[in-house]
């Protein structure tokens, strides 16, 4: 078996706020294989966003180790990261195409090829006709699709998503879940997906990692074995329900 793509071991992060220490991440250990979509669930404030920030190289850890990349899939920090947040964060003075181009521009990638790629990605997320539109002409769900295309434009190896569908209505959210699974299958990216939705975590994840608060640590992580490719009706199956109940149990909700 090949080495995992991401190894997080006993990760610890402490914030110092006005002289007091606040343990944001106590003890997180997590292995992620290349091409996996891992859902990260946990109560608000348990340190999920902090873990993502450390993986993105935006924060440094105060303890433990984080290793990304293996022999087959070398990882370049500051290059191989794509991020999607709850807000689409599109620049309203740029067209959708130019918004998608942003990370490629920052990295100084060749303009002509990335434009082609950005167009292909817009096609893939179903926004082929909106390349020249401006963000305020798009619905929330469409903006979020553009944000996903933007996260893929520089062909990063790891996509970090922090509650990307948290602000969408339930119906759009279901649709975006299916879209994400399709995009994930087509791109074979490694995705770490933070969510508060337990159903969403089970439905999307090939693996689910559950964090608990006080102290913030990893409660459990397990693989989800459900028929692939996943359809919405899998949610009504006994196996799906069992996974969901297991998470509810870990979070002390059952």
């Amino acid at each position: 078996m090949t080495a995992p793509f991401i190894r997080i071991e006993n990760l610890r992060k402490v914030f110092r706020v006005s002289g007091r220490e606040l343990v944001a991440v106590q003890d997180v250990t997590l292995d992620i294989r290349q091409g996996e979509l891992v859902s990260l669930v946990g109560p608000s404030g348990c340190g999920k966003s902090t873990v993502l920030s450390i993986l993105a190289g935006l924060l440094s850890a105060d303890g433990g180790t984080v290793e990304i990349g293996n022999a087959e899939n070398p990882f370049t920090p500051g290059r191989d990261i794509g991020m999607v947040f709850q807000k689409a964060l599109l620049l309203k003075w740029r067209t959708i195409l130019d918004n998608v181009m942003l990370p490629a521009e920052i990295l100084g990638l060749p303009r002509r090829e990335t434009r082609e790629r950005a167009r292909d990605l817009l096609q893939m997320v179903g926004l082929g006709d909106f390349a020249e539109a401006y963000p305020q002409q798009l619905s929330g769900g469409m903006q979020q699709r553009a944000a996903i295309a933007r996260a893929l434009v520089h062909d990063p190896k790891l996509i970090l998503m922090d509650e990307p569908f948290g602000a969408l209505d339930a119906l759009t959210r279901e649709k975006m879940n299916l879209e994400l699974l399709r995009i994930w299958r087509e791109s074979r990216k490694t995705i770490l997906f933070v969510t508060h939705g337990i159903q969403e975590a089970v439905f999307l994840g090939s693996q689910v990692a559950v964090m608990t608060a006080g102290p913030a640590r990893m409660a459990d992580q397990f693989h989800i074995e459900l028929p692939e490719p996943r359809h919405l009706d899998v949610k009504t199956t006994e196996a799906f329900g069992a996974y969901a109940r297991r998470i509810y149990g870990l979070l002390g909700l059952s």
């Binding site: 920030s53 990261i81 991020m83 942003l102 990370p103 920052i106 970090l160």
Partner: peptide, 25 residues
């Protein structure tokens, strides 16, 4: 938006890029 700054910093945007591409416009 602080998260937008995080997004571009994850691909190592420098201050000048943040200034010209995000802050100024």
């Amino acid at each position: 938006e602080p998260e937008l700054i995080n997004l571009v910093k994850s691909v190592r945007a420098n201050r000048w890029q943040i200034f010209t591409k995000i802050q100024l416009p």
